[in-house]
Nucleic acid binder design. Structure first.
Length: 445
DNA sequence: TCTGGGGTCCTAGGACCC
DNA sequence: TCTGGGGTCCTAGGACCC
């Protein structure tokens, strides 16, 4: 530690050496306990109380408030196993409410866009943004201002990691959360750069999952610091090009760009576990029809038609054997976005793979080979007359408009059935505060 | 009895072509 | 006896992310 005191001036009290002012950085803005935070924005009673949000079908824990984490409730814990514990500790419980989280995510993104257009919405609760320091404001100060503005404008607390690369920004964000500081930086020149990387287990590095981690450990790479020091060519040969890029990123060399314009989706899916398993082909047909409807609604929202359809069923087998899956993939004669056309193919596929007497846990409809709605090629195998195609398109448009205006499922295909016993459970669902008029909060003075 | 859902990318290997 | 080189496309499977 050194004091720089000029002889002409009186000795100043010690201040930490100012950190080098970077001109630019990647910032990762990560919402804290996002789903829990969303629920709390609209229900203040949940603040300061331990809170968990459950996955679809109330299956397992997918978000925990800080208080719930302090109670050692593990991420991914099956609800039925920990239910007693939660009740005993007075933990509040919510079913997931994706319409709400999606809206809140958009608000956070819009707030971040007031700082820079260089923004990648990486996931529902994370954004990468490119930042440039100004004459009056350092990168660190900018990070702090971002955190404050998002908190103030949306009610969602966020943590900000500042670094030269995305992979280091990930680690920095983790530091920011761990220390409780809200903002953390990780530049190669920083004195704690090595210590932080040494303190980051390989499993926590972005891009190293539970399969690769033990393999890295077995060749003497237990931390981010060790990976940083690995030979790049060797890593590429052993583990592939993505991991080699990761090595460079850890050294501070940007190798993953901020993707400002997300490429169009390559697949759209609707897959769900059943609340109550369908018990007959008829009941399963209803479920599949309903799943097709939902998948097609997503598809049309993205202005795409699909050329390939996959249907799969999963049984209750504990082991993931070949027997626990059944699936069919169908190349459609012509790319389409009609619910009834795809449903016809899906139901034909279902009859082929359905086995009576088997209890199915889950079904999924996946649409691939997506193309823009305009300019789908005419096919000689298309047995629909052009006039009927046009009519079908208008019908879909009308259904979407009516459903959007009057609630998601007011118009359904008859084949979806009315009873829908297989519908998933969500006993603790919060109101649709942002997407249904009757659920909007009312403030009385 | 009961453990989510929706994606992406990369690689290896085979078929096929010139 | 001997069996090239370079390329594309497709699929399955494995890994990852949140």
């Amino acid at each position: 530690m050194s004091f720089k005191t000029s002889p002409a001036e009186p000795a100043e009290p010690h201040r930490p050496e100012p950190r080098r002012a970077e001109a630019s950085a990647v910032a990762l803005v990560d919402c804290d306990n996002f789903y829990c935070s969303c629920e709390r924005v609209f229900d203040p009673k949940l603040r300061r109380r331990p809170l968990v949000v459950l996955s679809n079908n109330d299956g397992c824990v997918i978000s925990r408030s800080a208080e719930a984490k302090a109670l050692d409730i593990p991420m991914g814990a099956p609800f039925f196993k920990i239910r007693r514990d939660l009740e005993k500790n007075g933990v509040a419980i919510r079913s997931s409410n994706y319409a709400l989280y999606g809206d809140m995510s958009r608000r956070v993104q819009e707030t971040l866009a007031t700082f820079t257009p260089d923004l990648e919405a990486y996931s529902i609760d994370e954004c990468f943004i490119g930042l440039t320091a100004s004459a009056v404001e350092s990168i660190d100060e900018l990070g702090e201002r971002i955190r404050q503005r998002v908190g103030q404008w949306t009610g969602i607390p966020v943590s900000v990691g500042l670094a030269p690369t995305k992979s280091l920004a990930k680690i920095a964000t983790h530091q920011a959360k761990r220390s409780g500081s809200g903002v953390a930086r990780l530049f190669v020149e920083d004195t704690d750069y090595e210590a932080v990387l040494r303190d980051t287990p390989i499993r926590k590095v972005w891009g190293v999952g539970h399969r690769l981690a033990p393999k890295f450990e077995s060749v003497g790479i237990p931390t981010a610091w060790h990976l940083r020091g690995a030979d790049e060519a060797w890593v590429q040969k052993q583990w592939g090009v993505t991991l080699a890029r990761l090595v460079r990123e850890l050294r501070g060399v940007p190798s993953f760009a901020i993707e400002t314009n997300p490429p169009p989706k390559k697949a759209v899916a609707f897959t769900r576990s059943f609340g109550v398993p369908p018990e007959s082909l008829e009941e399963m047909s209803e479920a599949v029809s309903a799943y097709v409807s939902k998948a097609l609604r997503k598809l049309r929202k993205q202005r795409r038609k699909a050329g390939v359809l996959s249907l799969y069923l999963r049984t209750f087998d504990k082991e993931r054997t070949a027997h626990s899956f059944a699936s069919r993939t169908i190349e459609l004669p012509v790319a389409t976005d009609w619910t009834h056309e795809i449903a016809r193919h899906a139901l034909a596929a279902l009859e082929e793979i359905y086995r009576p007497g088997v209890r199915y846990k889950k079904a999924g409809v996946i649409l691939h080979d997506l193309r823009p709605t305009t300019g789908v090629q005419q096919s000689i195998f298309d047995d629909e007359a052009p006039a009927r195609r046009l009519k079908g398109e208008r019908l879909m448009q009308a259904v979407d408009i009516i459903n959007q205006r009057h609630g998601a499922e007011i118009i359904q295909t008859a084949s979806e059935g009315l009873e829908q016993r297989w519908q998933l459970r969500c006993a603790h669902r919060s109101p649709k505060y942002t997407s249904r008029w009757t659920d909007v909060l009312v403030v009385r003075c």
